[in-house]
Design a protein around this nucleic acid. Structure first.
Lengths: 223, 223
DNA sequence: TAAATAGTGTCTATCAGACAATATCGT
DNA sequence: ACGATATTGTCTGATAGACACTATTTA
């Protein structure tokens, strides 16, 4: 028998994806007290017998509850204090993950928890201090893209330059109405010498227009 | 009697200052097992009865052990796992603080712990995984200055533009030998419209040269 | 006057935003 | 041909690095 956990240590995940033309985040409905029935970020309490690290705790939460495996999980910030959880002194490490929607069957597969996609800028009330956690993760994501990092893991395996740009615009938005428009020329110029992604020679996205070159994430890319 | 802590939760602080012409960090010698006698970042185990938050734990550590109070304490990253501390599953939140040397009497005052200033890029072996913690804090500090944030809290109350520049160069260095030289003109131009600090009218630093205007941190400045 | 450092000005390469021009598809 | 979007090119203003020049002190 392992000793009782005190303080309460857990890992929570802000899992972002693109859907309905905007940035969305995965929420899970709490199945037990406290705050049963409230929506919250998916997460799990540390199990020292199973988890070598809190990142492992986060991965286990996604795997067990959502049958989901994410490539990159990044620590965002730690939230702690005596009053944030009614059970007492608690600490939660917030992680951030990005997934292309076509790799997320979570909503369909999950029988353990009720889950839904929420607009990343309009998600309503959440359990505990999770609204604050989510806002911090959302903001961290926006700041990274502002610093010219590319959220390529929000895109499908193959993608066009215009698709990257649209995704960046969605991440940069601060609300639903906001209309962030990046300049096409400037945006493409930035990647003339970058190596985050590479062209898939001979493959194009077709449509009622000139075909668009398809790209894929370069080996070694993180974030 | 409070329940026994499990996992072991603590807060550690990387306290930077300028001394001996380089960026230094404050180390404390461990006074008890495990790793007694090893040098480590100052820190303390969470005491739920005293600490409302882990930042409070960090402040308490500085206050109790070093008779020190810092204005700004910033969370850097959380380190955790089953093997980083011989006592078992542990978690430590790393904080970063900046202090002008003339406000640090720690080395003289402290009778609780033996402390010393170490070169921030050459600090030798440390207890537990503290060498890694320190490297992460050091790197985070460098990145912030690279992004044009000013580590004004490393400077004395009043300072000259050249002093800011020297401090930035020290922070940007990656090692002792490295010779980062910022351009004076470009450096000053950056702050023509900035509001991080303001001139102290009529006050100058004198020497064997043209007197230099003194500045002080503007109200509301963080970091 | 010389040495030292403060403070300012100039030139240029680079880059981002704005926007125009051209290319290549489906219909 | 036309509409739509991809891709490329041009112009311009802002900015950073390099470096030179002037200013003001002590010795």
């Amino acid at each position: 028998m392992t000793p009782k956990l005190f303080p309460l240590v857990s890992a929570d995940v802000a899992l972002f994806s693109i859907g309905d033309g905007c940035l969305q985040v995965l929420l899970a409905q709490r199945g037990r007290e406290p705050q049963k029935g409230f929506w919250a970020l998916p997460g799990s309490v540390l199990n020292p017998d199973l988890d070598h690290s809190l990142e492992a705790t986060a991965r286990r939460a996604l795997r067990e509850k959502l049958s989901l495996d994410v490539p990159h999980l990044e620590q965002v910030k730690t939230f702690d204090g005596a009053t944030r959880d009614p059970r007492g002194w608690s600490l939660s490490v917030l992680y951030c993950a990005l997934l292309p929607r076509d790799q997320v069957q979570a909503v369909a597969v999950s029988r353990v928890e009720k889950v839904r996609w929420a607009d990343a800028d309009d998600f309503g009330d959440l359990a505990f201090d999770h609204a604050q956690l989510l806002q911090v993760a959302r903001c961290a994501l926006r700041e990274r893209v502002k610093r010219h990092a590319l959220p390529l893991h929000l895109l499908p395996h193959k993608f066009t330059l215009t698709q990257i740009q649209r995704v960046c615009e969605m991440v940069l938005r601060t609300g639903r109405q906001d209309d962030v428009q990046l300049d096409k020329g400037a945006f493409r110029r930035r990647f003339a010498h970058a190596s985050d992604f590479v062209a898939v020679e001979g493959e194009f996205e077709t449509g009622a227009q000139r075909p668009a070159q398809l790209y894929r994430i370069a080996a070694g890319f993180r974030f």
